[in-house]
Structure formats: structure tokens, C-alpha cells
Design a protein around this nucleic acid. Structure first.
Lengths: 223, 223
DNA sequence: TCAAAAGTGTTAGATTTACACCCATGA
DNA sequence: TCATGGGTGTAAATCTAACACTTTTGA
């Protein structure tokens, strides 16, 4: 014990899980199952164990909820107001995750009683969770515009219109279809397949794929 | 006690203190004064007390070292690898601070045995502190280009050449003087004073001031 | 008198934006 | 046959980048 004159605190992780559906960015929230705050809307979280890193704790928590592994997650910020948790002093490390809504097993979702709620229509959440969502949203929006991570919110194969709708919801306004497609054509890591989607339109639209092997970091990437 | 089946951990803050001097971005580091790792180069940090928020702990730590208050600080990230600290399990919240080198009392600096080292010539630091500096640097560089925070690294009154050198070190290449000044002229929150600096040149250069009251958030701000 | 930094506009090139019509298909 | 979303190019406007000389003054 080197540090024992100081006090230890509990550390938790909270997950802001983003999905994209019906043209809107959504967040996964549920009713809190434990005291204090039982029954309030809340993010899904968990405590950090003695033998796991923060990233591992976040991954484990997400896995518990969704059964999904290898999900794109990033640390948002650590929230440490003294009285942020009404029970005990707990500091909480917020992580956001990007998942494709369709990959989330509906059984599991029901079992945990969580729901997708539009990020612009969130109810009041437990403790400082609204603040967490807000920070996560900003950070994610920022990142999605400068790195090709938007694809994590879409199925593996997607139409250009789907992609455009996603980016429209990111930038907050409509985008010109021709200009958008012109830019996409220049990104050789967005590859046209010979598959056609017939769900979105009568005529059908080509499906595209994001090829991570082709993408190399580009400080000038925009949208 | 609601959460007592989980274990508590120590939480510390570490400060990445940036300054700008001799045309270079610098970081304040010192020799670690405590075990484990006594004598190694290290960031300055401290433990988070039971009754203080993370932000407060960071502010207090910076104050202990520099005697400065109301300093621009931002949380970088929380580092939580299980064995990151060779002594006990400690998670550490990194904060960066921007200060004007000249405002730092030399007595205090000597007393704490800390030094300004160019950010591109840092030695190996204790634990994961190099990683912390690296993250802080990226984050700060990113922010300085999109928000007018660079002024925190300069004296209250500065010449346009000083400002240009700062931004050159941020973007990593030389900037055209005329284009730079053209852009500055358009920013009405950078105000020319009638004072003249005679230290930097024989002819003398007008001193400018950043006026925070005039600045309003601008999503398009660049440099 | 000269070295060293301050100060000042114009033009070509690149990037961004605006804009409208035909196509294929299932209902 | 028609309503719906899919797909395509050009031109104007804006923004960015390149570029060189005069001024002032302390040493």
C-alpha cells in the first residue's frame, strides 16, 4: 500500500449506444433496475472490476446488453462530480458505441427492457446521463464527419441513399444528391457491389460496401 | 452501501501543461518524487480526494504546482489499464492545461524541480504518461484549430508574428504571412491595440489582444 | 548603411454549391 | 399509367494558395 492516505472510489462505465433507424439517430435506454433511482430512464452501465481495464469493462457491459462483440466504442469522458450518484460516490467513465440496429437480437433487447429513442427526443435520464449523451453525441458527430465510422451504423451493404440520409442527420440539413454521390465516387474505400436492394424502391438501388483495407487515414477527409 | 460487492480503486489526475516559448510548444515535466518510479521523468499529478470533483482535483493539482488559478483546462481521457501503475491499481484522469510560460513564477518552478521540454523531444516518462501527452497533444491541436484558445498560450498582448509562429507550430508548416494576416483581420475578436512591441524587432510591431466578449461560437471557425 | 522584422493586394487555381431531367419498376 | 426513388453533368460562385516589394530603425 503506497497510497493509502487517500480514499478509493467506485468506478463505473456507462454506455451511450447509438443506432440509426427510420432516418434518425437513436440511443438505447432503459428503466434502471437497481436502487437508487430504480425505474428512472437511464443508460446501461456497470461497475469496473478490479482485474479489468476501463475499455474491457465497457466492452463487457455492452456485451451483456447486446451480445455483440468487436463493436466500435470510444471513451467519451469521465464524470466525477462528488454527488453525481445519489447513492455513494461513484465516478463514471462514459463510452459511446455505434451499432447497426438490425444486428441487435430482439429477444435480448426485450429481456433487458431497453428501447431505441430518437436522440432529439430523449426523456430526462438518471443522474448526469443526459449530459453524457450530449457529450457523446457531440464527439461522435465530430468524428463521423472526419473519419469513416458512419458505416458502423449501417448494414454491411447499404445504398447511397441510406448513407446520404445518415449524413444528413449528422450535419443537420439536406444534402444535394448529385454532389453527395460525386464525393462518394472519389472515395475508393466505398465500393459498389453488383448486388441490388429492392426494399427501398421499385427500381432497385446498387448496394455499396465500406472496404476498410482500402481506407488509409486522410487528414483531409470530410464527410 | 449499495455497491459493496464491487471493489473501489484509487483515482488520480495527471496534468499535461502546455506552454509556448522560443517558437516551440513545450510541456512541463519533472522528476517523480515518490515511489514507485522515484526519479523518473513524469507528469505532475495527484490523487482525487473524497470530497472533490475530478475537475477540482485537476485545478488544485495545477495550483499546487504553478500557483495559477482560472487556467484553461480540459479533460483528455481516463487511463485505466489494470497494471498501468507499478504500485497499486490506480486509474488516472488526464487533463491538459494551457498557460503562458511567462506567467509561471520561476521560484515555484525551481522549487518543484519541473522543466519546460519541447513536445517533440520528450524523454521516456513514467507509466503511460507519454501516451497521455500524445493524446492531450492531439486533442489540443484539434481544438486550437477550431476554437480560439491559442491565446491562452500567449501573453495578453501579442504581435501578429507571435500568433503566426504559434499557429505554424500547430499546423506543422510555415504559413504565408499575408494570407494569415488577411484571415486575422476578418476576426473581429482579435483586436489591434495602439501599443507597440519593441522587443521583437527594431521597427516595432503593433500589439493585439483577444477579446472574449466579442467572440461568439462559430462552427466554421478555422485557425 | 544595412540587416531584420513589419506591413501590405492581386491573381490563378481549386473547391464547393446550385440546379433539372430521364429511368426503371411495382402497384 | 403513374408515383416513387435511382441515377447522372455543368457552370457560377466562393474559397484558398501563391507570390514580392517597401518601410522602419537599432546597431
Amino acid at each position: 500500500m503506497y497510497y493509502n492516505e487517500y480514499s478509493k472510489v467506485w468506478v463505473s462505465v456507462d454506455c451511450i449506444i447509438f443506432g440509426f433507424d427510420e432516418g434518425k439517430l437513436k440511443v438505447l435506454i432503459g428503466r434502471r433496475q437497481m436502487d437508487p433511482g430504480r425505474g428512472e430512464w437511464s443508460l446501461y452501465g456497470g461497475f469496473v472490476a478490479a482485474d479489468e481495464s476501463l475499455d474491457d469493462a465497457a466492452r463487457r457491459t455492452l456485451y451483456e446488453l447486446t451480445g455483440m462483440k468487436d463493436v466500435f466504442m470510444r471513451q467519451v469522458e469521465t464524470f466525477g462530480r462528488v454527488n453525481r450518484d445519489p447513492g455513494e460516490r461513484v465516478i463514471s467513465v462514459a463510452y459511446y458505441a455505434l451499432i447497426n440496429v438490425k444486428d441487435y437480437n430482439e429477444e435480448l433487447q426485450k429481456e433487458h427492457g431497453v428501447e431505441w429513442v430518437s436522440s432529439d427526443e430523449l426523456p430526462h435520464l438518471y443522474s448526469d446521463h443526459n449530459e453524457m449523451v450530449d457529450k457523446a453525441w457531440r464527439l461522435m458527430m465530430q468524428k463521423i464527419r472526419t473519419e469513416p465510422i458512419g458505416f458502423k451504423l449501417l448494414p454491411e451493404l447499404f445504398t447511397l441513399t441510406q448513407l446520404q440520409r445518415l449524413y444528413e442527420s449528422v450535419v443537420g440539413h439536406e444534402i444535394d444528391k448529385r454532389n453527395f454521390r460525386k464525393r462518394i465516387k472519389e472515395m475508393d474505400f466505398i465500393q459498389k457491389t453488383d448486388k441490388i436492394d429492392k426494399k427501398g424502391s421499385k427500381r432497385g438501388a446498387y448496394l455499396y460496401r465500406f472496404n476498410d483495407n482500402v481506407y488509409k487515414e486522410d487528414p483531409n477527409f470530410k464527410l
